[in-house]
Amino acid sequence: MTFMCSKAARGGYFWLFFSFISALSVLLPRVAAAAETVPVEAMEWWVWIVLLFVFSFCLGIVAVIAGVGGGVLYVPIVSSLFPFHLDFVRGAGLMVALAGALSAGAPLLNKGLANLRLALSMALIGSVSSIFGALVGLALPAHIVQLALGGTILFISFVMLTAKKSEFPDVKPDKLSQILHIQGIYYEESLKKDIDWQIHRTPVGLVLFILIGFMAGMFGLGAGWANVPVFNLVLGAPLKVSVATSVFVLSINDTAAAWVYLHKGAVLPLIAVPSVIGMMLGTKIGAKLLTRVKTKSVRVIVITLLTLAGLRAILKGFGI
């Protein structure tokens, strides 16, 4: 009976999310077109703000369940659905990713899942490149950024669809990781034992974090989609350590890029704050629902949604 109820509940939640995402996919092009053609005065400003809050809240729920950061969903979808310029959407996207990373960082560090040394080593180089990414992104014409954003989002969809995961990679530590003392032990709940871990291919990881930081700064995306595979598959950190440390790295890299957007006047509180609050509340609800829904199905829907948003960004970039 309990099994049946929980199965029914899972099914209910799944169809709730499926309906939400399907409605979004159908409405996305129409609402976006309306947002571009109807003068903003035709709709009270506070209606947009409330819609943005509700939308960010829903996005927060979906993002946690799909195992992606909020920023990567926020920028392509909000820039398609709302009448805000891409500059402000990217500025708000960075703040969304930053606020989420700040609020999640402390518990992950306390549990020993996120590793300070691993994060600091990679974030130093990533934060410098994220500053340059932000400068380039704000200097380029909007349609070029739209095209590049669309291409990047399609690439992210591909990575999410094809990336493999390795729970406990087999690693022989390299010289640099030994010099930097990047290693650790964390308690694995599922196995009820401590897991010893080390990393390898540290120089390759550093080079990849230059690219990741640049893209995060340029598009205002959180870069969890890229951080996790690099930590896990390239550097060989266990999957849970990779996910947790990725969140922590975001808080440093996004901070660097956020300052550039702040100094360029590309962060409007009217857009950024409702997004930050909505996304953070949604993330908390999503974390509670996480055990009750079929994450694999939601992940497929999110990948589909990202693909649609990526295609739409490319069309917008071509002025279509």
Binding site: I131, I252, A256, W259, V260, H263, K264
Partner: peptide, 18 residues
């Protein structure tokens, strides 16, 4: 070094103005 990077970004020395 990380603090310096963030302080330089925060100072507005890089990319401030419109």
């Amino acid at each position: 070094l990380q603090i310096l990077v963030l302080l330089v970004a925060a100072s507005g020395l890089i990319g401030s103005g419109h």
